[in-house]
């Protein structure tokens, strides 16, 4: 494919039960495009962690997945509280999620480090009180 394809999703922040629906859809779309299974899994996991984060911390947000010839970009944007200390947030095990979230199986402080682990590149742009935008890239044909 010579042109890029963009998939846009609104992530509903009200409902924890439905969190992850966008990731499931992304997975289906990437399968349809014939992307390699290991890449699909990497993208799906990173996107799913991001989606869960947006629901837990930011009251939802927007996700764009851009599939180009040589890479897949994921852009997650929210208007939540922002991340005060990104370096701290990137540490495995550090979490500001309440216990109620931990009882749902999340909030172990693995989300952001996990996203970075599965992606080739990741940048976090966050302003307290304004919101957070995370850009992630995985390269194809490696």
């Amino acid at each position: 494919m010579s042109e890029s394809l963009t998939f846009h999703y609104d992530v509903d922040g009200e409902d924890f039960t439905s969190a992850g629906q966008a990731s499931v859809q992304v997975k289906k779309n990437l399968r349809r495009l014939g992307i390699a299974p290991d890449i699909i899994r990497q993208v799906s996991i990173a996107m799913y962690e991001g989606e869960i984060n947006m629901v837990i911390h930011a009251g939802g947000g927007e996700a764009d997945v851009i599939v180009s010839e040589d890479k897949i970009d994921i852009i997650l944007a929210d208007h939540g509280p922002g991340i005060a200390d990104i370096e701290l947030a990137m540490q495995e095990g550090y979490s500001t999620a309440p216990d109620s979230v931990r009882s749902l199986g999340f909030g172990a402080g693995m989300g952001l480090p996990n996203m970075k682990r599965y992606m080739d590149e990741m940048t976090i742009d966050s302003t307290v009180g304004v919101g957070t935008t995370i850009k992630m890239t995985v390269y194809l044909n490696r």
Partner: peptide, 22 residues
């Protein structure tokens, strides 16, 4: 589930006591 997403690789079966859609 955070740990499953972080540490699991190619496992086909998940055993869990957590019950929700996630």
């Amino acid at each position: 589930m955070s740990d499953v997403l972080a540490y699991v690789k190619d496992q086909a079966v998940l055993l869990t006591g957590l019950v929700n859609s996630q």
